[in-house]
Amino acid sequence: MESYFDIDIWGLVAAVVMVIVAAGISALMRTGVAKSLIWATARSLVQLLAMGFILEYVIRQNNVWLVIGLITLMLLAAVQITMGRATGAPKGLVGIVLLSLVVTMLLMLAIVAELIVRPKPWYAPQLVIPLTGMLLGNTVSALALGLSRFFESMRERYAEVNTMLALGATKWEAAKPSMISSIRLGLLPSIAMLASSGIVTIPGMMSGQIIAGKSPVSAAKYQFVILAAVAALTLVADSIIIALIYKRCFISYDRYFVPEPAKKLSFKDLVQLRKDVHPDEKPDEVRREAEQEQRARTR
């Protein structure tokens, strides 16, 4: 960290002041976003610092079980966010979403961490945890988008699906157009990110390494590996999930029947639900979940 420029407390204050000024201006213009801007800023400050402290602790401990525990929490949060954002998806998909996230995460860790980067120890938290976060952030958006699109498309194609079935199509054949459209939509952001990185944007991870004083070229190599892996694995996750859920739109004797969308869970319900599932967890995890969302957005 030879040439690393740390941000002191006044730096944070300056950033907050900037937001307050901006909020003041928008309040004067009566745009109505001032309050939510302040609220979001406060949340982001708290969430990011919390994640920072947690990561610092985990990295300092360098304990394999702590790493695995943190990753498990991140996975569960990712499942919850996916289900919350996938509008129109029916109930009972949690297991499938978890499965596809676990599979892609293991692939990511096996290929990117253990095959390409080869850290020592193998579970090096400063590599494994950010990697997981980046993958999950991306996959969560893609899965939520893909799931919503799939069920929406299956509902829209009511007449088409029934016509195809009447002509002798299998479930797979009748659902295929919706699967393709869903996977395509889910993958679009990844492709756009691959194509625009380096021209329009310097991706977050590369920026971070450069600011931290690493060589921009090695930062670029790192970034490329991550982007490519994330794009590929997003496709994998999307395909797994669509291949596992398309049957939900049919009942016995291959008859078309799209299940009712699950009731939308509010944020409060989510906290409640999580408490029901993991009674010993602190709401601190909820923060992390929102934080991952944040990270997915900023990257």
């Binding site: 007449a159 029934n162 016509t163 079935l165 009447a166 002509l167 002798g168 291959d254």
Partner: peptide, 19 residues
Amino acid sequence: TPQRWRVAVAYLPQTSTLI
């Protein structure tokens, strides 16, 4: 199989959906 049944007993819907 559902497919073989519908090949033999073909339902033609009222609205024509041409794909």
